[in-house]
Design a protein around this nucleic acid. Structure first.
Lengths: 186, 186
DNA sequence: CTTTTTACCTAACAGTGTTAGGTATTCTCG
DNA sequence: CGAGAATACCTAACACTGTTAGGTAAAAAG
C-alpha cells in the first residue's frame, strides 16, 4: 500500500482494515506510522548495502563506479517507496537501523566518494577536477535526478495524463553515466 | 511560510492568524490551499518563462544549452518551494496558469529538447546519441538531481545534523553540465 | 491456580482542509 | 439618495488524519 498509493495516502485505518484489525492495534507493534514504514524499508536497505559490499572488491575504480551505479539504479527502480523515503522526503530518517553512516561498505555516498579518491590518486581524472567530494556529488546527483523524476512521473501518470515521452530509466541512466564519466576522466 | 516551513507544515489557520483573519476567509479568495500556493508560485514561474524567451535568440545550440541550464539552476535556488511544487511533488499541478506546455518559449523541457534537435542536425553530437528526447532527459535529470538534493538537504539541515559536505550548488551544477556536455558532444 | 503480561478493542483528542449558514459592510444603479 | 445585491468575513461544524487513554479477554509465567 505504501508503494502503490504513497506514504501520505496510506492511512493507519486503511492498513488495519486490510488485516481485519483496528488502527490502534498497530500501535502495540510499532511506535508510529513512520516506524512501521521504516521497519518495512529496512530489509531492502540492507540488501542494497550488501550489494555494495560485493562491488567493493573490484579493482578498477572506474569499473567499480559503473557497477555501483547499476546497483543503485536497480535498487531505486525496484523499491521506489524506500528510495522516496530515503532521498526525496524533506524529513529524511537519518539513522536507518543497521546502516551506520561513514562506513563505505554500507553508506552509498561515502562508498562513491572513496572511488573518486582512488581515481584521483591513480591520475584517471581530468586536471580541472580535483575534489572527490564534488565528483561524488555530481555522479550521485545525476542518477538521483533521473530516478526521482521517474518515480514522481510514475506516481503522476497514475492520476492523469502523461507529459513527457520518458525513455527507459535503466538504459538512460547507464548511457548518461557513461557520458558523464567520459567528460570527467581522461 | 510555504518557503520557510514547507507546504504541508503551513496550515490554513496559521496563514489566517498571520493576517488576523479566520481560515474560512481565505476560501472567499482562493478555492483551496493548493490554488493559493499556485497563485503565489505563478508569478515566479512566468519569470522563468520570460527568461527562457530571452535565451531562445542565441544562435549556437551548445551556448544556448549552457545559458538555459544557468537560468534553470538560478530559478530553482531562488524559488525552492515553487521548484518543489513543480517537480518534486507526487501530485504535480500540470497546468500552471499562463504556461502552456509544448511551446518551447514557455515549456522548459520542450525548449531543451529543441536545442538537442538542433545540435543533432548540426552534427555536434557523438554518434552513439541520436535521440533528442533522451539527450534532453539526461541534461534535465542531472540538474534536477543536484537541485532537488540541495533543496531537501536544506530542509533537513534545519531540523538537525548535516550529513554530507555539500559544495556550492550553482558552481557544481555548472561544472557537472560542462562534463556531461563534453561527454555527449564531439 | 493465581498473577502478570500480551493482544486487542472502543472512545476520544487534537489537528488538518473544507463547507454551511448567517451577519455586517460595501457597491450598484434607478 | 436609498433599496437591493454583491462582497467580506465570522462562528460551527464535518470528515478525515495520526495518536492516546482506559478497559477486556486471552495467553503465559510461576
Amino acid at each position: 500500500m505504501f508503494v502503490r498509493d504513497g506514504y501520505e495516502a496510506t492511512t493507519m485505518r486503511a492498513i488495519a482494515d486490510k488485516v481485519d484489525y483496528t488502527a490502534t492495534a498497530i500501535y502495540h507493534h510499532f511506535r508510529s506510522k513512520e516506524e512501521l514504514m521504516l521497519e518495512l524499508a529496512t530489509t531492502d536497505f540492507r540488501a542494497l548495502a550488501t550489494a555494495f559490499g560485493q562491488i567493493g572488491r573490484i579493482e578498477d575504480p572506474i569499473e567499480r563506479l559503473r557497477r555501483v551505479g547499476e546497483a543503485y539504479v536497480e535498487f531505486a527502480l525496484a523499491h521506489p517507496m524506500q528510495y522516496q523515503l530515503m532521498f526525496m522526503t524533506p524529513h529524511p530518517v537519518m539513522t536507518v537501523k543497521g546502516i551506520t553512516r561513514g562506513d563505505p561498505s554500507q553508506d552509498a555516498y561515502a562508498f562513491l566518494r572513496r572511488i573518486w579518491e582512488e581515481a584521483l590518486a591513480a591520475g584517471r581524472v581530468r586536471p580541472e577536477y580535483t575534489d572527490a567530494e564534488e565528483l561524488a556529488q555530481m555522479c550521485w546527483s545525476s542518477l538521483h535526478g533521473l530516478l526521482s523524476l521517474h518515480i514522481v512521473k510514475h506516481n503522476a501518470t497514475q492520476h492523469g495524463e502523461q507529459w513527457i515521452a520518458w525513455r527507459d530509466a535503466g538504459k538512460t541512466a547507464r548511457r548518461m553515466s557513461e557520458a558523464l564519466v567520459r567528460g570527467l576522466t581522461r
